[in-house]
Design a protein around this nucleic acid. Structure first.
Length: 448
RNA sequence: GCGAUCGUAGUUCAGUUGGUUAGAACGCCGGCUUGUGAUGCCGGAGGUCGCGGGUUCAAGUCCCGUCGAUCGCCCCA
């Protein structure tokens, strides 16, 4: 690489190969699951007026105060690359009059931007999948949203991750708790870590999940949210947990779990890998793979009517690290012309096969040995060989690469044979899955 | 924003106490009398050792800076 070749910007990534396949798998699975829960697909701008984020997230949050990519456009407006989805979705809801669709279930995904120090699982341009239910104040909305998140993780095959659940209460409960925490920690201010002394002013709730041993000494006796919850808030949380139990979603109460952004009320949650699990190891310092909560106050902060809502977002890169390697689907059919003279015929045949829905690749480089070699390594089930004789007779050589058996067939017959091959492979895969399931069932029976 | 480790072919890495033309594997390209593969054989291309400066007769190797990656803190998805 030459000295003048440009490099990617810090914290951005070019995703390719197995990683890109896993990334696509995460998005495709999300699309599939989202439809089962009848969330509607939506797309939103990647940038908004800066105030959209500043007003809704809270001026003192780290995201707003030091992590936004903000710039002035040529018209002099201050714009910001979205650091999260929720604020922009709320803005869209208000400016398009989507109240008419309430309760509105929305799903989206795409890139987000935060000026942070890059690490494994943390990038300056990163990607999230996102789900929101807007205009629904019922706890059932929280339950459905969480059930979908749990379902998604199962479909992705992610294990060793637990839903950590908390309630921050309504606005009054949350404010009273906050005041209680400031009183409690303020009395021992000098003994807290430097970080927590700062948090005391900016976001006292955050002290609760501090890892500093100086702070940990005071955590056990810190005021708990439960003591400040109004009857309504308590009843709300109770409905959520009962609903989760009914839906079969496992959860764990996490009293110290708070959310960094100002707009959260009531339900707050994160899916976190269990300590010592494979998932925890894969993620490094980044623990939360999916997080969110209820944000009943957000719409008002943007000047809209009082509108209850819940939502979550999950980092696609983090999910990708947990779903394991996925490779490109193998080629099904290889078309191999013997020489230059047969190439046009090969193009014609390959196109017919693709139009018949077979993943087909042409192999025209190197000698015959290399062509077969490559076809084999790409995973081809069969090769269609075209030489001078085939050109003359119109019948092509069809070679089953597993058995080595080779016959002269018409194009129609080749398509028919190819369907048979695919069907046989599908049956074999299903048999494998079945016997795996049987083994699991047997193992379960022995445990009982 | 703070602290720490690392940076050599496309990739994964080796490179002795500083010492001549920087190596391996895989990958890539070509060939093995040009109609047949899944462990074969032969040959080839590809690196100003992240970048810039310094010490030295001599730097991939030591020092400083810078950029980037990784790990922890902070924050978050």
């Amino acid at each position: 690489m030459s000295k003048n070749t440009p490099k990617a910007i810090r914290g951005t990534q070019d995703i390719f190969g197995a990683d890109a396949e896993s990334f696509a798998f995460v998005v495709e699975t999300f699309e599939r699951v989202r439809k089962l829960y009848r969330f509607r697909r939506a797309e939103f701008p990647v940038f908004e007026k800066t105030e959209v984020f500043a007003r809704s997230l809270g001026e003192t949050t780290d995201v707003v105060s030091k992590e936004m990519y903000s710039f002035e456009d040529r018209g002099g407006d201050s714009l910001t690359l979205r650091p999260e989805f929720t604020a922009g979705i709320a803005r869209a809801y208000l400016s398009n009059g989507w109240q008419q669709h309430a309760p509105l279930k929305i799903a989206t995904h795409g890139p987000l931007f935060r000026y942070e120090r890059p690490q494994k699982g943390r990038y300056r341009q990163f990607h999230q999948i996102d789900a929101e239910i807007i205009g629904a104040g019922e706890p059932q909305a929280d339950v459905e949203l969480l059930a979908m998140a749990d379902h998604l993780l199962k479909e992705l095959g992610i294990e060793g991750v637990t839903l950590h659940l908390n309630t921050l209460g309504d606005a009054a409960s949350r404010d009273a708790w906050r005041a209680g925490l400031i009183d409690y920690f303020g009395a021992v201010r000098g003994e807290l870590s430097e970080d927590s002394q700062e948090r005391l002013d900016k976001n006292p709730l955050r002290i609760l999940d501090s890892k500093d041993p100086r702070d940990k000494a005071f955590l056990a006796d810190a005021p708990k949210i439960d003591a400040f919850l109004s009857n309504e808030a308590l009843a709300f949380f109770d409905s959520v947990t009962k609903g989760l139990d009914a839906a079969g979603v496992k959860w764990k109460r996490a009293e110290a779990l708070v959310r960094g952004l100002d707009y959260y009320r009531h339900t707050a949650f994160e899916f976190i890998p269990d300590e010592g699990s494979e998932a925890a190891k894969a993620l490094g310092a980044q623990s939360t793979i999916l997080g969110g909560g209820r944000y009943d106050g957000l719409m008002e902060s943007l000047g809209g009517p009082d509108t209850p809502a819940v939502g979550w977002a999950a980092g696609i890169e983090r999910l990708t690290m947990l779903v394991g390697e996925r490779n490109q689907e193998p080629v099904e059919l290889a078309v191999i012309p013997l020489g230059k003279d047969e190439e046009l015929k090969a193009i014609e045949v390959a196109q017919s096969l693709r139009l018949s829905h077979f993943a087909t690749e042409l192999f025209v480089r190197g000698n015959m040995k290399k062509r077969f070699n490559r076809a084999d390594q790409a995973g081809a089930k069969a090769a269609i060989i075209i030489g001078a004789d085939e050109l003359a007779s119109g019948l092509l050589q069809f070679k089953d690469l597993k058995t080595g058996e080779q016959t002269a067939l018409s194009l129609d017959a080749i398509i028919e044979r190819s369907w048979d091959l695919r069907f046989a492979d599908d049956m074999e895969a299903m048999d494998d899955q079945l016997s795996e399931l049987e083994q699991e069932v047997r193992a379960l029976g022995e445990q009982d």
